[in-house]
């Protein structure tokens, strides 16, 4: 039995112009101790799907799923009181903006203590000891002094370490990290990722890492979910994903990696932006940006083939890097010059 088992997760928001499906058809099944990654551009619904799992979306959100279970418990059937016992305790989350994610009115110690008190209990002294241990564990120097600090006295990296200390304070079995390094500078990013992976290994908890950095995915995750415009377009283990991306979007993301650009002068890009609420195309949501798109793609919404383990949401999934799409005839993968989307100077 998977630790986190989600099938067909959808999140809809009631807006002035009707119901907007921010997330649709997301499946994820994380086993104990596994590291998963969810990738996609901004606006792909990565955060929303995980916030829905945690039950942190505002009341305007309508969350539905065919299945949404944590360790066998159906999250949709639990009372809010029962769910709060899981959220924070067994399943915890850290966020994109560490500086604004800590309450400015309370000290670091108070905020960690509050969480331990909620889920583990113990005497004031025991909780204090635990908070000190946790701060040391996440690499905060001089924990005895820092525990009395207010969030505005900490740097972004320190704040994220405090958030991590808080998130792991109750020995969760699953940690969801929502772009934990986006707001930090590059040197700190690596440290925070390293810390998360070390903690994951030490404690054996499962980790879901939301990111838009394929490089991070390659270094960290075992399994990858690719999302585009709220839809899950592909799900594979990391090795096969990098070797054989099935969805053209995944392929495009990978070719945008500097390491893969080879000696080209310019990095390949994916033209256009993720469609928002008002400019959703008909047919496949990726078709305006896909270089293999055909008339069929523009008219008919794709469904994943039942026998496809990657559940690729594409009419013409790539096979060994080659698209069976009729539109692919003029697009040779190894010759970027011929791609209409790639701008390469001689």
């Amino acid at each position: 039995m998977a630790l986190l088992d989600i099938e067909g997760l959808s999140v809809r928001f009631q807006t002035s112009s009707g119901l907007f499906a921010a997330v649709e058809g997301v499946n994820i099944n994380v086993d104990r101790g596994e590291v998963w990654s969810i990738v996609g551009e901004s606006g792909s619904g990565k955060s929303v799907s995980m916030l829905a799992t945690m039950g942190l979306l505002p009341w305007t959100a309508q969350v539905t799923a065919d299945k949404m279970a944590f360790d066998g418990q159906d999250l949709q059937q639990l009372s809010s009181r029962q769910r709060r016992r899981i959220v924070g305790g067994e399943m915890s989350m850290i966020f994109q903006e560490p500086m604004s994610s800590l309450n400015p009115c309370f000290t670091v110690g108070t905020q960690i203590d509050e969480m331990i008190k909620q889920h583990l209990g113990g005497s004031r002294k025991e909780r204090h000891e635990r908070a000190l241990d946790l701060l040391a564990q996440v690499g905060i120097p001089d924990p005895a002094r820092r525990i009395k600090a207010y969030p505005h006295q900490l740097s972004g990296g320190m704040s994220q370490r405090v958030m991590i200390a808080m998130a792991i304070s109750c020995n969760p079995r699953l940690l969801i990290a929502d772009e934990p390094t986006t707001a930090l500078d590059v040197t700190i990013q690596a440290q925070i990722l390293e810390l998360l992976l070390r903690l994951q290994e030490d404690t054996g908890m499962a980790l879901i890492l939301i990111t838009h950095d394929m490089g991070v995915v390659a270094e960290t995750a075992k399994h990858v979910v690719v999302q585009y415009a709220g839809r899950q377009v592909e799900k594979q283990d990391v090795k096969s994903l990098f070797a054989n991306p099935r969805h053209p979007y995944t392929e495009a993301l990978l070719s945008a990696l500097p390491e893969r650009a080879g000696d080209q002068d310019r990095l390949p890009t994916i033209p256009g932006v993720v469609p928002g609420q008002h400019d959703r195309p008909t047919g496949c949501l990726f078709n305006p940006r896909c270089r293999y798109a055909t008339e069929h793609c523009r008219e008919v919404e794709p469904v994943a083939a039942p026998d496809d383990p990657a559940r690729t949401l594409c009419h013409y999934p790539l096979e060994d890097g080659i698209s069976p799409s009729p539109a692919a005839a003029g697009v040779a993968r190894d010759n970027p010059q011929s791609s209409p989307h790639r701008e390469v100077r001689p």
Binding site: S80, S101, M166
Partner: peptide, 15 residues
């Protein structure tokens, strides 16, 4: 609407 209120909810605290 602040992030830290979401954090507080993520801690499993009562409403």
């Amino acid at each position: 609407g602040e992030d830290y209120v979401r954090t507080a909810r993520a801690k499993g605290l009562s409403n």
